[in-house]
Design a protein around this nucleic acid. Structure first.
Lengths: 208, 208
DNA sequence: GTCTATAGAAAGATAGAC
DNA sequence: GTCTATCTTTCTATAGAC
């Protein structure tokens, strides 16, 4: 063959974006350790070498992917939290967005799948605390706000994990409305927070 | 040196148990992909070759570790569920057992850390459904028992993940009593299940 | 039953041509 | 900017001596 393999049109921005997109999909599916740079490169339609040329290392690429995901608003974004009943918003949001292969929560998938890598877990923890936990703690306020926010995050992560990662039948096949009905009072309770002792026994007894 | 390296005393049962113990610790810490047979062997005080000699392959060793864990009762064992307030038992149990490097919940850690491996996820799902979810659904009873049981499992898994895998500060550093105080009403609500509409507002108003 | 030594595959990262 | 080819390391698994 006299004609060389036609080199890909040179476009740094497009290539960089293609790598990020491919990496996001790959990390969400198989985690940091479960995917190689060759596979990521193939998904972007380039050769393996380019990944390191653009991002320096697999680890730096992972960090950029995680940062990009954290920069996107999601269920716990302030807009959703301020608009209506927090409990209902959280319940409906988490049920809807963990249903199918919804991309908005790639972040949780990536973190779950990458948790076995020490470095990946550290990156995930830092980003979660900076973005989600900080925002949610402030939105909640009241006593034990940090602990309540952390527990809400843990519940969201647990639902995500059992539904999409493990694929627990009772969650994966459940009717969304039923799950939301179960979860709404749970989140409502966590949003309301511990009532002062004097009021504790009157909680939810208003119309009794 | 004329004296050879003294070979380890030959004891098949002890060696096998040592490998299983080391593997359990290693898998819980770093997941299926995150640990090599060399490391497992070192933890058992033997050479890497012995792992495959005893268990055939790394995957078979993993399967035996998981099976061994699932055979052991834990927080969700029927005894605990039947003894007292289910919500309080669940809350105190999960808080206490996710605190330090408690071994009883190695199972959750291993599954979380190994979730990126397709085979590991399948093993985990089958075992969870057969043991924990089945037991818990029966213990709960009532409407939507399967969904409620699955959500309880998801919450336990989420707390575990955020506390021990991710290491979210607000959970890792929190006082156990405070976490239990927040979680008890959450679990109580899930254990009680959705009340008939006529009774809903009287829930927890008994001694008011 | 246990060891040392190594085969064979796959990973991340790099060199140098075009 | 992109490629092919290769370096180096690390992994699982096996062979063969003692």
């Amino acid at each position: 063959m006299s004609k060389k393999v036609p080199p890909r049109p040179r476009n740094a921005d497009a290539t960089r974006a293609a790598i990020l997109s491919s990496a996001r999909r790959a990390f969400a599916r198989a985690g940091y350790d479960g995917v190689g740079v060759r596979e990521i490169a193939a998904g972007a339609g380039i050769s393996a070498m380019m990944v390191n040329r653009y991002f320096g290392s697999k680890e730096q690429l992972f960090a950029e992917v995680v940062a990009g995901i954290m920069a996107t608003p999601m269920i716990l974004a302030p807009e959703n939290l301020a608009s209506r009943s927090l409990g209902a918003a959280l319940a409906e949001g988490v049920v809807a967005q963990t249903a199918s292969g919804a991309t908005p929560l790639d972040g949780f998938l990536i973190m779950m799948h990458s948790a076995s890598s020490r470095r990946a877990a550290e990156i995930a923890r830092a980003e979660i605390e900076q973005h989600y936990h900080r925002q949610l703690s402030r939105a909640l306020g009241g006593a034990l706000a940090q602990e309540r926010a952390a527990i809400i995050l843990a519940i969201v992560a647990g639902i995500q994990a059992m539904r999409q990662v493990i694929g627990l039948s009772a969650l994966a096949k459940a009717q969304p409305a039923r799950l939301a009905a179960i979860l709404t009072p749970v989140f409502d309770q966590l949003v309301a927070g511990p009532l002062p002792a004097a009021r504790r026994r009157r909680h939810s007894a208003k119309t009794g």
